[in-house]
Amino acid sequence: MNTYIRTLKIFTRLLSGLFVLSGFTFSGPEKDISIHVKPVFGKQDLLLDKKTYITANHDTISVSKLRFYISGIKILFRDNSVYTENNSYHLIDAEEEQSLRIKLTQVPQKEIAGLHFNIGVDSLASVSGALDGDLDPVKGMYWAWNSGYINAKLEGKDLTKGIEENEFEFHIGGYLPPYQSIRQVHLTTTKEEITPAEIIVIADVEAWFSYISLKKTNRIVIPGAEAVKMADDYTKMFRLEN
């Protein structure tokens, strides 16, 4: 009798175990993961102020500020399903270590195909008055005299000899047509891999600078055609780390 009960118990445990397992296979397990944005200059980590870099267009520079908004994050899976982060607005600031890690909750553990996000803030948020969190105008990423968010900021010094006005300043924004500067970035992965605990996104300032020649332009601080062009260009600085 006792052995009979014991066998029954083991059997039910096995059954429930199987049930749980099958449950996992149907909906997929979910985990909290993070997107880690890594600012670099070429092959090296980006060092603010301290380091001198030479750009593709032969400018000698140091970088003092790199900030941009990542919004509308989506993770794409190979089964064509999509994870969409709600209320997705993140200010990335090369100077603020904790801003470089974006926590995403309950992300399905499945084979991932890629990552989508916007650089910048959408027009709805741009006309919605005073917002909070990373969108709080206190963050210095909101224009005062011409409303709207600055989608990306890059500042530093042109260290080429003989230049007195040696600061460069790019504040890229604008949400009104025809000068919208929010941009989509689509990054696809070639690896076959289940959602990792950390997705590393490289932001390569050297790649951004390959489109800049400081001798021609060292300042864009208003919405307009120049800002639109630069927004197109800097989308190319992002890639997934393999």
Binding site: V138, K139, G140, A144, W145
Partner: peptide, 28 residues
């Protein structure tokens, strides 16, 4: 504003707050 540059009453004060000839300050 005279040129309509500000799009919402809530963010309007940012203009005089940050203007170097008005309050020359930051919200921060």
């Amino acid at each position: 504003m005279w040129d309509g540059g500000v799009n919402n009453l809530e963010v309007q004060p940012l203009a005089p707050i940050t203007s170097p000839v008005e309050m020359d300050n930051t919200l921060e």
